[in-house]
Design a protein around this nucleic acid. Structure first.
Length: 514
RNA sequence: GGGCCGUUAGCUCAGCUGGCAGAGCACCGGACUUUUAAUCCGGGUGUCGUGGGUUCGAUCCCCACACGGCCCA
Protein backbone atom coordinates (compact mmCIF):
# COMPACT_ATOMS: atom_id res chain seq x y z
CA UNK A 1 0.00 0.00 0.00
CA UNK A 2 1.58 3.30 -1.06
CA UNK A 3 1.93 5.88 1.67
CA UNK A 4 -0.05 9.03 1.23
CA UNK A 5 1.81 12.36 1.22
CA UNK A 6 0.12 13.17 4.53
CA UNK A 7 1.63 10.11 6.16
CA UNK A 8 5.09 11.05 4.97
CA UNK A 9 4.52 14.60 6.15
CA UNK A 10 3.45 13.32 9.55
CA UNK A 11 6.68 11.36 9.97
CA UNK A 12 8.67 14.59 9.61
CA UNK A 13 9.20 17.11 12.40
CA UNK A 14 7.50 20.49 12.24
CA UNK A 15 10.44 22.30 10.62
CA UNK A 16 12.86 19.65 9.43
CA UNK A 17 16.42 20.90 9.36
CA UNK A 18 15.75 23.92 11.52
CA UNK A 19 17.95 24.56 14.52
CA UNK A 20 15.03 23.72 16.79
CA UNK A 21 14.48 20.40 15.00
CA UNK A 22 18.18 19.65 15.42
CA UNK A 23 18.07 20.45 19.12
CA UNK A 24 14.90 18.41 19.54
CA UNK A 25 16.43 15.48 17.70
CA UNK A 26 19.53 15.53 19.91
CA UNK A 27 17.37 15.70 23.02
CA UNK A 28 15.29 12.75 21.83
CA UNK A 29 18.49 10.76 21.27
CA UNK A 30 19.67 11.71 24.74
CA UNK A 31 16.40 10.37 26.15
CA UNK A 32 16.71 7.12 24.20
CA UNK A 33 20.26 6.63 25.50
CA UNK A 34 19.03 7.11 29.05
CA UNK A 35 16.08 4.78 28.46
CA UNK A 36 18.54 2.03 27.59
CA UNK A 37 20.10 2.55 31.00
CA UNK A 38 23.22 4.23 29.60
CA UNK A 39 24.62 7.37 31.24
CA UNK A 40 25.26 9.87 28.42
CA UNK A 41 27.67 11.76 30.68
CA UNK A 42 29.70 9.10 32.49
CA UNK A 43 32.30 10.33 34.96
CA UNK A 44 35.35 8.74 33.33
CA UNK A 45 36.75 6.64 30.55
CA UNK A 46 40.13 4.98 30.75
CA UNK A 47 41.94 5.57 27.47
CA UNK A 48 45.39 4.11 26.98
CA UNK A 49 46.34 6.04 23.85
CA UNK A 50 45.82 9.35 22.17
CA UNK A 51 44.73 9.23 18.55
CA UNK A 52 48.23 9.99 17.41
CA UNK A 53 49.82 7.46 19.75
CA UNK A 54 47.48 4.70 18.60
CA UNK A 55 48.45 5.24 14.98
CA UNK A 56 52.19 5.47 15.79
CA UNK A 57 51.99 2.34 17.92
CA UNK A 58 50.24 0.51 15.09
CA UNK A 59 52.82 1.59 12.54
CA UNK A 60 55.61 0.46 14.84
CA UNK A 61 53.86 -2.89 15.37
CA UNK A 62 53.51 -3.31 11.62
CA UNK A 63 57.17 -2.50 11.07
CA UNK A 64 58.16 -5.04 13.72
CA UNK A 65 55.58 -7.52 12.41
CA UNK A 66 54.05 -7.84 15.87
CA UNK A 67 50.40 -6.94 15.25
CA UNK A 68 49.38 -8.03 18.75
CA UNK A 69 50.98 -4.87 20.09
CA UNK A 70 48.23 -2.88 18.35
CA UNK A 71 45.43 -4.75 20.13
CA UNK A 72 43.60 -3.63 23.26
CA UNK A 73 43.66 0.01 22.29
CA UNK A 74 41.35 2.51 23.98
CA UNK A 75 40.96 5.95 22.46
CA UNK A 76 38.49 8.76 23.01
CA UNK A 77 37.54 11.91 21.21
CA UNK A 78 34.91 14.07 19.62
CA UNK A 79 33.07 12.69 16.60
CA UNK A 80 33.94 15.09 13.79
CA UNK A 81 32.80 12.99 10.84
CA UNK A 82 30.47 10.01 10.36
CA UNK A 83 30.04 7.73 7.36
CA UNK A 84 27.26 5.30 8.13
CA UNK A 85 26.49 2.38 5.78
CA UNK A 86 23.79 0.30 7.36
CA UNK A 87 25.51 -2.43 9.34
CA UNK A 88 28.91 -0.71 9.26
CA UNK A 89 30.10 2.81 9.91
CA UNK A 90 33.28 4.87 9.96
CA UNK A 91 33.65 7.66 12.50
CA UNK A 92 36.47 10.17 12.77
CA UNK A 93 37.35 10.90 16.39
CA UNK A 94 39.43 13.92 17.26
CA UNK A 95 41.44 14.58 20.39
CA UNK A 96 44.19 17.12 20.99
CA UNK A 97 46.77 14.89 19.30
CA UNK A 98 44.88 14.47 16.04
CA UNK A 99 42.18 12.41 14.41
CA UNK A 100 41.71 8.66 14.28
CA UNK A 101 39.20 6.72 12.25
CA UNK A 102 37.09 4.13 14.02
CA UNK A 103 35.41 1.31 12.12
CA UNK A 104 32.16 0.07 13.60
CA UNK A 105 30.63 -3.19 12.42
CA UNK A 106 27.40 -4.57 13.76
CA UNK A 107 28.57 -8.20 13.79
CA UNK A 108 31.67 -7.19 15.80
CA UNK A 109 29.99 -4.76 18.18
CA UNK A 110 26.75 -6.61 18.80
CA UNK A 111 24.52 -4.65 21.18
CA UNK A 112 26.89 -1.68 21.31
CA UNK A 113 26.09 -1.01 17.66
CA UNK A 114 22.60 0.04 18.72
CA UNK A 115 23.84 3.39 20.03
CA UNK A 116 24.96 4.41 16.55
CA UNK A 117 21.62 5.99 15.55
CA UNK A 118 21.76 8.07 18.71
CA UNK A 119 25.22 9.47 18.00
CA UNK A 120 25.66 12.90 16.45
CA UNK A 121 28.55 14.92 15.15
CA UNK A 122 30.06 16.61 18.18
CA UNK A 123 29.47 13.81 20.67
CA UNK A 124 32.41 12.46 22.65
CA UNK A 125 32.92 8.74 22.24
CA UNK A 126 35.28 6.20 23.77
CA UNK A 127 36.33 3.26 21.58
CA UNK A 128 38.01 0.02 22.66
CA UNK A 129 39.40 -2.16 19.92
CA UNK A 130 42.30 -3.25 17.79
CA UNK A 131 44.23 -1.28 15.23
CA UNK A 132 43.81 -2.53 11.70
CA UNK A 133 44.43 -1.26 8.22
CA UNK A 134 41.36 -0.79 6.05
CA UNK A 135 41.04 -1.84 2.44
CA UNK A 136 42.12 1.65 1.43
CA UNK A 137 45.17 1.40 3.66
CA UNK A 138 44.15 3.72 6.47
CA UNK A 139 45.21 2.94 10.03
CA UNK A 140 41.92 2.51 11.87
CA UNK A 141 40.68 1.26 15.19
CA UNK A 142 38.16 -1.52 14.78
CA UNK A 143 35.71 -1.03 17.62
CA UNK A 144 34.93 -3.88 19.99
CA UNK A 145 33.11 -1.64 22.45
CA UNK A 146 31.66 1.87 22.36
CA UNK A 147 31.15 4.20 25.30
CA UNK A 148 29.36 7.49 24.92
CA UNK A 149 31.30 10.04 26.97
CA UNK A 150 29.30 13.22 26.44
CA UNK A 151 26.32 13.97 24.25
CA UNK A 152 26.62 17.19 22.25
CA UNK A 153 23.36 19.10 22.40
CA UNK A 154 24.11 21.71 19.72
CA UNK A 155 25.19 21.29 16.10
CA UNK A 156 28.80 22.16 15.31
CA UNK A 157 29.87 24.59 12.60
CA UNK A 158 30.22 23.08 9.18
CA UNK A 159 33.09 20.64 8.78
CA UNK A 160 34.36 21.60 5.34
CA UNK A 161 34.43 25.39 5.32
CA UNK A 162 34.99 25.67 9.06
CA UNK A 163 33.91 28.73 10.99
CA UNK A 164 34.75 31.97 9.21
CA UNK A 165 32.68 34.58 10.96
CA UNK A 166 35.31 36.41 12.99
CA UNK A 167 32.84 37.67 15.53
CA UNK A 168 31.70 34.14 16.38
CA UNK A 169 35.30 32.91 16.23
CA UNK A 170 36.32 35.35 18.98
CA UNK A 171 33.15 35.32 21.06
CA UNK A 172 32.89 31.53 21.04
CA UNK A 173 36.53 30.60 20.68
CA UNK A 174 35.78 26.97 21.52
CA UNK A 175 33.85 26.72 18.25
CA UNK A 176 36.81 28.25 16.42
CA UNK A 177 39.11 25.67 17.99
CA UNK A 178 36.79 22.83 17.02
CA UNK A 179 36.08 23.99 13.49
CA UNK A 180 39.53 25.39 12.61
CA UNK A 181 42.22 23.05 13.96
CA UNK A 182 45.08 25.30 12.79
CA UNK A 183 43.93 27.89 15.34
CA UNK A 184 44.93 25.54 18.14
CA UNK A 185 48.43 25.31 16.64
CA UNK A 186 48.97 29.03 17.18
CA UNK A 187 48.02 28.78 20.83
CA UNK A 188 50.22 25.74 21.37
CA UNK A 189 53.07 27.75 19.85
CA UNK A 190 52.23 30.63 22.16
CA UNK A 191 52.58 28.32 25.12
CA UNK A 192 55.93 27.05 23.81
CA UNK A 193 57.19 30.60 23.34
CA UNK A 194 56.31 31.57 26.90
CA UNK A 195 57.84 28.46 28.39
CA UNK A 196 60.88 29.07 26.18
CA UNK A 197 61.23 32.56 27.64
CA UNK A 198 61.08 31.15 31.15
CA UNK A 199 63.70 28.52 30.31
CA UNK A 200 65.95 31.16 28.77
CA UNK A 201 65.75 33.55 31.71
CA UNK A 202 65.85 30.85 34.38
CA UNK A 203 68.95 29.49 32.65
CA UNK A 204 70.60 32.88 33.05
CA UNK A 205 69.89 32.99 36.76
CA UNK A 206 66.81 35.20 36.71
CA UNK A 207 64.18 34.82 39.43
CA UNK A 208 60.54 34.92 38.39
CA UNK A 209 58.41 37.06 40.68
CA UNK A 210 54.85 38.26 41.06
CA UNK A 211 54.14 41.90 41.81
CA UNK A 212 50.79 43.56 42.52
CA UNK A 213 48.15 43.94 39.84
CA UNK A 214 46.00 46.14 42.09
CA UNK A 215 48.10 49.23 42.69
CA UNK A 216 47.52 52.61 44.33
CA UNK A 217 49.50 54.49 41.66
CA UNK A 218 49.40 53.32 38.03
CA UNK A 219 52.95 54.29 37.08
CA UNK A 220 55.77 53.00 34.90
CA UNK A 221 54.36 53.60 31.42
CA UNK A 222 52.47 56.05 29.26
CA UNK A 223 48.91 54.81 29.50
CA UNK A 224 45.52 55.44 30.98
CA UNK A 225 44.62 53.00 33.74
CA UNK A 226 41.52 51.04 34.61
CA UNK A 227 40.15 52.20 37.94
CA UNK A 228 38.69 49.99 40.62
CA UNK A 229 37.86 50.21 44.30
CA UNK A 230 38.74 48.17 47.35
CA UNK A 231 35.76 48.11 49.68
CA UNK A 232 37.41 47.11 52.96
CA UNK A 233 40.18 49.69 52.58
CA UNK A 234 37.72 52.12 51.00
CA UNK A 235 40.49 53.07 48.63
CA UNK A 236 40.66 53.71 44.92
CA UNK A 237 42.97 51.26 43.22
CA UNK A 238 44.12 50.81 39.64
CA UNK A 239 44.99 47.85 37.49
CA UNK A 240 48.70 48.03 36.77
CA UNK A 241 49.85 49.47 33.45
CA UNK A 242 53.39 48.07 33.89
CA UNK A 243 55.43 46.06 36.36
CA UNK A 244 58.50 48.27 36.12
CA UNK A 245 58.55 50.16 39.39
CA UNK A 246 57.87 47.12 41.55
CA UNK A 247 60.53 45.07 39.81
CA UNK A 248 63.05 47.86 40.37
CA UNK A 249 62.16 47.85 44.07
CA UNK A 250 63.30 44.21 44.02
CA UNK A 251 66.59 45.25 42.42
CA UNK A 252 66.94 47.70 45.30
CA UNK A 253 66.22 44.75 47.58
CA UNK A 254 69.16 42.85 46.12
CA UNK A 255 67.51 40.15 43.99
CA UNK A 256 69.77 41.32 41.12
CA UNK A 257 68.03 39.41 38.29
CA UNK A 258 64.24 39.38 38.28
CA UNK A 259 61.50 39.00 35.72
CA UNK A 260 57.75 38.85 35.58
CA UNK A 261 55.47 37.62 32.83
CA UNK A 262 52.10 39.06 33.57
CA UNK A 263 48.98 40.72 32.38
CA UNK A 264 48.93 44.51 32.31
CA UNK A 265 45.94 46.70 31.56
CA UNK A 266 45.77 49.89 29.53
CA UNK A 267 42.50 51.71 29.10
CA UNK A 268 42.75 52.49 25.42
CA UNK A 269 41.44 51.52 22.03
CA UNK A 270 41.40 48.11 20.40
CA UNK A 271 43.00 47.46 17.04
CA UNK A 272 45.19 44.98 15.21
CA UNK A 273 47.98 45.24 17.74
CA UNK A 274 46.27 46.59 20.85
CA UNK A 275 44.11 44.78 23.37
CA UNK A 276 43.24 46.47 26.68
CA UNK A 277 44.79 43.62 28.62
CA UNK A 278 47.96 42.06 27.30
CA UNK A 279 50.88 40.01 28.48
CA UNK A 280 54.10 41.80 29.25
CA UNK A 281 57.51 40.40 30.07
CA UNK A 282 59.71 42.71 32.09
CA UNK A 283 63.17 41.80 33.28
CA UNK A 284 65.77 43.71 35.29
CA UNK A 285 69.40 42.78 35.61
CA UNK A 286 71.72 44.54 38.04
CA UNK A 287 75.14 45.52 36.69
CA UNK A 288 73.90 45.24 33.09
CA UNK A 289 73.26 48.15 30.74
CA UNK A 290 71.19 48.53 27.59
CA UNK A 291 74.01 47.14 25.44
CA UNK A 292 73.97 43.91 27.43
CA UNK A 293 70.18 43.80 27.18
CA UNK A 294 70.37 44.22 23.39
CA UNK A 295 72.52 41.11 23.20
CA UNK A 296 70.11 39.28 25.46
CA UNK A 297 67.12 40.25 23.31
CA UNK A 298 68.84 39.08 20.12
CA UNK A 299 69.74 35.84 21.76
CA UNK A 300 66.31 35.30 23.31
CA UNK A 301 64.21 36.11 20.26
CA UNK A 302 66.39 34.27 17.78
CA UNK A 303 66.49 31.19 19.99
CA UNK A 304 62.70 31.31 20.33
CA UNK A 305 62.35 31.55 16.56
CA UNK A 306 64.60 28.55 16.24
CA UNK A 307 62.77 26.57 18.93
CA UNK A 308 59.28 27.35 17.72
CA UNK A 309 59.94 27.39 14.01
CA UNK A 310 63.06 25.31 13.61
CA UNK A 311 64.47 28.25 11.68
CA UNK A 312 65.64 31.83 12.12
CA UNK A 313 63.44 32.81 9.18
CA UNK A 314 59.74 33.41 9.72
CA UNK A 315 57.27 34.31 6.98
CA UNK A 316 55.15 37.35 7.79
CA UNK A 317 52.82 38.39 4.99
CA UNK A 318 54.99 38.88 1.91
CA UNK A 319 58.14 39.27 3.97
CA UNK A 320 60.54 36.77 5.43
CA UNK A 321 61.87 37.99 8.75
CA UNK A 322 65.37 36.74 9.54
CA UNK A 323 66.10 36.79 13.27
CA UNK A 324 69.74 35.75 12.95
CA UNK A 325 71.82 37.98 15.23
CA UNK A 326 73.34 40.48 15.36
CA UNK A 327 70.61 42.96 14.54
CA UNK A 328 71.60 46.44 13.34
CA UNK A 329 71.81 49.22 15.93
CA UNK A 330 70.29 52.33 14.38
CA UNK A 331 70.47 55.78 15.94
CA UNK A 332 66.98 57.16 16.43
CA UNK A 333 68.05 60.70 15.56
CA UNK A 334 69.84 59.58 12.39
CA UNK A 335 67.01 57.36 11.21
CA UNK A 336 64.46 60.11 11.73
CA UNK A 337 66.67 62.54 9.85
CA UNK A 338 67.23 60.08 7.00
CA UNK A 339 63.56 59.29 6.45
CA UNK A 340 61.79 62.51 7.42
CA UNK A 341 64.54 65.03 6.65
CA UNK A 342 64.09 66.49 10.12
CA UNK A 343 66.89 66.75 12.67
CA UNK A 344 65.03 66.80 15.95
CA UNK A 345 67.88 68.80 17.50
CA UNK A 346 66.79 71.73 15.33
CA UNK A 347 63.45 71.66 17.19
CA UNK A 348 64.27 71.68 20.90
CA UNK A 349 60.74 72.40 22.15
CA UNK A 350 57.19 71.28 21.53
CA UNK A 351 56.18 74.54 19.85
CA UNK A 352 58.82 74.47 17.12
CA UNK A 353 58.40 70.74 16.51
CA UNK A 354 54.62 71.11 16.29
CA UNK A 355 55.15 73.65 13.53
CA UNK A 356 57.48 71.33 11.68
CA UNK A 357 55.08 68.41 12.02
CA UNK A 358 52.35 70.58 10.61
CA UNK A 359 54.61 71.35 7.61
CA UNK A 360 55.07 67.62 7.14
CA UNK A 361 51.32 67.09 7.11
CA UNK A 362 51.30 65.07 10.30
CA UNK A 363 48.30 66.89 11.80
CA UNK A 364 49.72 67.30 15.31
CA UNK A 365 47.29 68.19 18.05
CA UNK A 366 47.36 71.80 19.28
CA UNK A 367 49.12 70.85 22.53
CA UNK A 368 51.31 67.84 22.16
CA UNK A 369 54.49 67.37 24.14
CA UNK A 370 57.77 67.10 22.24
CA UNK A 371 58.21 63.45 23.15
CA UNK A 372 54.76 62.61 21.82
CA UNK A 373 55.52 64.41 18.56
CA UNK A 374 58.76 62.50 18.11
CA UNK A 375 56.85 59.30 18.81
CA UNK A 376 54.39 60.21 16.08
CA UNK A 377 57.20 60.97 13.61
CA UNK A 378 58.82 57.65 14.41
CA UNK A 379 55.64 55.74 13.79
CA UNK A 380 55.21 57.43 10.39
CA UNK A 381 58.75 57.65 9.04
CA UNK A 382 60.86 55.04 10.74
CA UNK A 383 58.98 52.15 12.30
CA UNK A 384 57.25 50.89 9.12
CA UNK A 385 60.70 50.57 7.52
CA UNK A 386 62.03 48.37 10.29
CA UNK A 387 60.94 45.12 8.73
CA UNK A 388 64.02 43.08 9.51
CA UNK A 389 64.83 42.88 13.22
CA UNK A 390 66.68 45.99 14.34
CA UNK A 391 67.34 48.18 17.34
CA UNK A 392 66.52 51.85 17.39
CA UNK A 393 68.82 53.34 20.00
CA UNK A 394 69.27 56.48 22.09
CA UNK A 395 65.89 58.08 22.62
CA UNK A 396 65.19 61.69 23.57
CA UNK A 397 64.90 62.18 27.31
CA UNK A 398 61.46 63.82 26.82
CA UNK A 399 59.86 60.48 26.03
CA UNK A 400 61.78 58.30 28.50
CA UNK A 401 61.26 59.41 32.10
CA UNK A 402 62.64 56.24 33.67
CA UNK A 403 65.83 55.88 31.62
CA UNK A 404 69.33 57.01 32.51
CA UNK A 405 70.81 59.91 30.57
CA UNK A 406 73.33 59.10 27.86
CA UNK A 407 76.79 60.21 29.06
CA UNK A 408 77.91 61.33 25.57
CA UNK A 409 74.62 62.66 24.23
CA UNK A 410 72.99 65.38 26.32
CA UNK A 411 69.21 65.29 26.05
CA UNK A 412 69.22 61.59 25.16
CA UNK A 413 68.95 58.47 27.26
CA UNK A 414 70.39 55.01 26.99
CA UNK A 415 67.29 53.39 25.60
CA UNK A 416 66.47 51.10 22.71
CA UNK A 417 63.42 49.62 21.16
CA UNK A 418 63.57 46.51 19.02
CA UNK A 419 61.44 46.29 15.90
CA UNK A 420 60.54 43.60 13.42
CA UNK A 421 57.90 43.59 10.70
CA UNK A 422 57.39 47.26 11.50
CA UNK A 423 56.21 46.36 14.97
CA UNK A 424 57.77 47.26 18.31
CA UNK A 425 58.70 44.09 20.13
CA UNK A 426 60.96 45.26 22.93
CA UNK A 427 61.72 48.38 24.95
CA UNK A 428 64.75 48.68 27.17
CA UNK A 429 66.97 51.09 28.93
CA UNK A 430 69.80 51.54 31.29
CA UNK A 431 67.69 52.32 34.32
CA UNK A 432 67.70 55.72 35.93
CA UNK A 433 68.92 55.15 39.49
CA UNK A 434 69.61 58.72 40.64
CA UNK A 435 66.66 59.48 42.95
CA UNK A 436 66.92 63.24 42.52
CA UNK A 437 66.96 63.04 38.74
CA UNK A 438 64.09 60.57 38.85
CA UNK A 439 62.09 62.93 41.02
CA UNK A 440 62.68 65.73 38.53
CA UNK A 441 61.65 63.49 35.62
CA UNK A 442 58.40 62.60 37.36
CA UNK A 443 57.79 66.30 37.93
CA UNK A 444 58.34 66.92 34.23
CA UNK A 445 55.79 64.21 33.44
CA UNK A 446 53.29 65.78 35.83
CA UNK A 447 53.89 69.09 34.12
CA UNK A 448 53.33 67.44 30.75
CA UNK A 449 50.06 66.01 32.04
CA UNK A 450 48.85 69.44 33.07
CA UNK A 451 50.35 71.62 30.37
CA UNK A 452 49.53 69.34 27.46
CA UNK A 453 46.42 67.59 28.78
CA UNK A 454 48.40 64.38 28.38
CA UNK A 455 46.45 61.85 30.39
CA UNK A 456 48.96 59.18 29.50
CA UNK A 457 51.94 60.97 31.04
CA UNK A 458 53.68 58.97 33.73
CA UNK A 459 52.81 59.46 37.40
CA UNK A 460 54.97 60.16 40.41
CA UNK A 461 55.38 57.18 42.69
CA UNK A 462 56.85 58.52 45.94
CA UNK A 463 57.29 55.11 47.48
CA UNK A 464 59.39 54.11 44.48
CA UNK A 465 61.47 57.27 44.89
CA UNK A 466 62.05 56.33 48.53
CA UNK A 467 63.28 52.93 47.36
CA UNK A 468 65.70 54.60 44.92
CA UNK A 469 67.01 56.73 47.77
CA UNK A 470 68.19 53.58 49.48
CA UNK A 471 70.30 52.94 46.39
CA UNK A 472 69.71 50.92 43.24
CA UNK A 473 72.72 49.46 41.42
CA UNK A 474 73.27 50.20 37.73
CA UNK A 475 70.65 48.09 36.01
CA UNK A 476 69.52 47.09 32.55
CA UNK A 477 65.76 46.71 32.16
CA UNK A 478 63.61 45.21 29.45
CA UNK A 479 59.98 45.02 28.42
CA UNK A 480 58.66 42.71 25.71
CA UNK A 481 55.05 42.57 24.59
CA UNK A 482 54.48 38.84 24.51
CA UNK A 483 51.42 39.01 22.31
CA UNK A 484 53.24 40.90 19.58
CA UNK A 485 56.20 38.59 19.86
CA UNK A 486 53.85 35.64 19.40
CA UNK A 487 52.32 37.39 16.39
CA UNK A 488 55.76 37.71 14.86
CA UNK A 489 56.86 34.18 15.58
CA UNK A 490 53.61 32.61 14.41
CA UNK A 491 53.01 34.88 11.43
CA UNK A 492 49.68 36.27 12.66
CA UNK A 493 48.77 39.78 11.56
CA UNK A 494 46.25 40.63 14.29
CA UNK A 495 46.66 40.43 18.05
CA UNK A 496 43.19 38.88 18.24
CA UNK A 497 44.58 35.75 16.67
CA UNK A 498 47.12 35.26 19.45
CA UNK A 499 44.66 36.01 22.29
CA UNK A 500 42.23 33.21 23.09
CA UNK A 501 39.57 35.65 24.21
CA UNK A 502 40.21 39.09 22.72
CA UNK A 503 38.22 41.97 24.17
CA UNK A 504 34.84 42.41 22.48
CA UNK A 505 31.99 44.76 23.10
CA UNK A 506 29.33 43.08 25.23
CA UNK A 507 26.19 42.06 23.44
CA UNK A 508 23.04 43.58 24.86
CA UNK A 509 20.83 40.50 24.41
CA UNK A 510 21.68 36.83 24.70
CA UNK A 511 24.74 36.96 22.47
CA UNK A 512 23.00 35.46 19.49
CA UNK A 513 23.50 32.11 21.08
CA UNK A 514 20.01 30.68 20.97
C1' G B 1 35.73 60.27 17.04
C1' G B 2 35.38 60.12 11.15
C1' G B 3 34.97 57.27 6.42
C1' C B 4 34.07 52.72 3.82
C1' C B 5 32.38 47.61 3.91
C1' G B 6 29.61 43.60 6.11
C1' U B 7 25.23 41.27 8.93
C1' U B 8 20.27 36.21 4.49
C1' A B 9 18.85 28.65 7.27
C1' G B 10 22.88 25.61 12.69
C1' C B 11 27.60 26.57 9.30
C1' U B 12 29.69 28.44 4.43
C1' C B 13 27.62 31.51 0.95
C1' A B 14 24.30 33.12 -3.65
C1' G B 15 20.10 36.34 -4.32
C1' C B 16 19.83 40.34 -11.26
C1' U B 17 16.06 46.53 -12.32
C1' G B 18 11.78 46.45 -5.88
C1' G B 19 7.51 41.35 -7.54
C1' C B 20 6.21 33.85 -3.91
C1' A B 21 13.61 33.24 -0.09
C1' G B 22 18.08 29.88 -2.82
C1' A B 23 22.45 26.21 -2.94
C1' G B 24 26.15 23.03 -0.51
C1' C B 25 27.19 21.01 4.21
C1' A B 26 24.60 19.86 8.68
C1' C B 27 19.69 17.92 10.09
C1' C B 28 15.06 14.39 9.56
C1' G B 29 12.90 9.60 7.01
C1' G B 30 14.55 5.32 3.87
C1' A B 31 18.56 1.96 1.44
C1' C B 32 23.53 0.36 2.18
C1' U B 33 29.20 -4.38 6.11
C1' U B 34 35.86 -1.02 3.95
C1' U B 35 34.06 4.54 3.99
C1' U B 36 37.05 8.92 4.26
C1' A B 37 33.81 16.12 1.79
C1' A B 38 30.85 8.20 1.44
C1' U B 39 26.88 7.32 -2.07
C1' C B 40 21.62 6.86 -3.63
C1' C B 41 16.08 8.17 -2.85
C1' G B 42 12.75 11.48 -0.23
C1' G B 43 12.04 15.98 3.22
C1' G B 44 13.54 21.90 3.00
C1' U B 45 14.86 24.84 7.55
C1' G B 46 14.29 31.76 7.66
C1' U B 47 12.29 37.88 12.91
C1' C B 48 16.82 38.42 5.38
C1' G B 49 20.94 42.25 12.41
C1' U B 50 17.04 45.78 15.03
C1' G B 51 13.57 49.89 14.62
C1' G B 52 11.36 53.44 11.50
C1' G B 53 10.27 55.44 6.42
C1' U B 54 9.16 55.41 0.92
C1' U B 55 6.06 52.08 -2.07
C1' C B 56 0.31 48.61 -4.37
C1' G B 57 4.53 45.64 -2.83
C1' A B 58 11.17 46.06 0.51
C1' U B 59 16.35 40.99 1.67
C1' C B 60 16.83 44.92 -2.20
C1' C B 61 15.71 52.08 -1.90
C1' C B 62 16.07 55.98 2.39
C1' C B 63 16.98 57.18 7.83
C1' A B 64 18.51 55.79 12.73
C1' C B 65 20.62 52.24 15.84
C1' A B 66 23.42 47.59 17.26
C1' C B 67 27.48 44.35 16.42
C1' G B 68 31.78 43.20 13.49
C1' G B 69 35.81 44.25 9.91
C1' C B 70 39.17 47.57 7.29
C1' C B 71 41.19 52.49 6.78
C1' C B 72 41.99 57.29 9.04
C1' A B 73 42.47 60.40 13.65
Amino acid sequence: MPESPETIQDSQPENPGSLQANLDSRRAKLQRIRQRGVDPYPPRFQRNCTADEAIKLFEAAEAAETPDRAAGISVAGRIVSMRVMGRAAFLDLRDASGTIQAMLRQNVLGDDYAILPDLDLGDFLGVDGNMIRTRTGQATIEAHALTILAKGMRPLPEKWHGLRDVETRYRQRYLDLIANPEVADTFVQRSRIISGIRRFLDGRGFVEVDTPILVPIPAGAHARPFITHHNALDEQLYLRIATELYLKRLIVGGLDKVYEIGRVFRNEGIDQDHNPEFTLLESYEAYADYNAVMEMVESLVSSLAHDVHGSMQVAMGDEVIDFTPPWPRLSLREELQRHSGVDIEDYPDAESLTGKCRDLGLAPGPREARGRLIDKMLSVYVEPRLVQPSFLIDYPEDMSPLAKGHPDKPGYVERFEAFAAGMEIANSYTELNDPDVQRARFAAQEHQRDAYDDEEADRTDDDFLTALEYGMPPTGGLGIGIDRLVMLLTGQSTIRDVLLFPQMRSLSDDGGNT
